[in-house]
């Protein structure tokens, strides 16, 4: 008898919850402020946006294991984009009014804008670089394989890294 009563009350509670949920769905405007996701250069990502939104943590995690631990460096879509965080940053980097990339402490940063909205904290950028290196142009990057160290001069390094840090090469623009 008591079991029945419990079941009954459970059913009622669930019903109430369901109703309230559907009423929320019906009036989405009341969900609070909406986020505007920053648009990037328009090239296609490895998955449609809806799927990326849902799956990017799994994809990144998969790739980090494959790349770091297994040494698999294959491109994700068979040639162009690799599934690395570096790739995400290179395509999705946002610039501020002075044509400088915004860093991870800025709410406009692509990852931050959404993660802050969703209140999900990430620690990726404690280690990973948060903006592209140099111009961040994907095409130049994929041809550019690495620095040549044949003629490195001792004692030259400290200047370059600090200077290079947040500077976008002249003439670089997102509109091609």
């Amino acid at each position: 008898m008591r079991l029945h009563l419990n079941l009954l009350s459970l059913a009622i509670v669930s019903l109430v919850l369901l109703t309230s949920m559907s009423s929320v769905v019906a009036s989405q405007d009341s969900l609070g402020p909406k986020i505007t996701i920053q648009q990037t250069s328009g090239e296609k990502c490895i998955l449609p946006p809806e799927e990326m939104r849902r799956q990017h943590p799994d994809l990144l995690k998969h790739d980090r294991i494959a790349t770091l631990r297994e040494g698999v460096r294959a491109k994700a879509d068979g040639g162009k984009l690799d599934g690395s965080l570096k790739q995400c940053v290179n395509c999705h980097a946002i610039k501020d009014d002075s044509n400088k990339y915004v860093r991870i402490d800025n709410d406009q940063h692509f990852c931050v804008s959404c993660h802050k909205y969703a209140a999900v904290s990430i620690d990726c950028f404690q280690c990973h670089r948060d903006i592209p290196e140099g111009g961040g142009d994907f095409h130049t990057l994929s041809n550019h394989k690495g620095i040549n160290y044949n003629a490195v001069v001792p004692g030259t390094y400290n200047l370059t890294v600090q200077d290079m840090a947040n500077i976008v090469p002249e003439g670089y623009s997102d509109d091609k």
Binding site: H128, R129, D130, P132, N166
Partner: peptide, 16 residues
Amino acid sequence: EVLSDQKENTPRGKGC
């Protein structure tokens, strides 16, 4: 310490 401006091919950060 907390690092920033890492190279994109060598992620590195505090506490590791």
